[in-house]
Amino acid sequence: MFKIDSSRADLAAAYKKNPLDTYPSPALQKVLQRLRWGNARGRTIVVCTVPEREWRLGKMGTRRGMPVEIDGQAYNRYEDALWACFRARWREVSGEDCPVA
């Protein structure tokens, strides 16, 4: 199984540059597939808090009917929220901090 290599700052930087890139490199695609594998419950997700204007990171509860935990940081660009989600997932999946701030 492919393991995320925290020395590959170049891949994180490529995602940060264009989170909506339709044609990520094969190496970045592998990272994204690892970060996206599995159910989103219990993991960091993006929540749109003002339609088309504001996004925040969030976490769903352990089952339906529980409040979604919303992070205090608001992002006015969807891409910025995606990048923040990428960094959080990197930590959740690899156990190490994303090498790009």
């Binding site: 159910n39 989103a40 419950r41 749109c48 769903m60 339906r64 979604v68 929220a81 989600c85």
Partner: peptide, 29 residues
């Protein structure tokens, strides 16, 4: 978003809840 284990891989995006999605998630009835 909560039912599928393959939602993000199928859509190619991190889950992004709208206000409606969130309302259904928080109000399960």
């Amino acid at each position: 978003a909560s039912s599928w284990s393959f939602d993000e891989l199928s859509s190619g995006k991190f889950v992004t809840l709208s206000a409606g999605d969130r309302y259904l998630e928080e109000n399960h009835s």
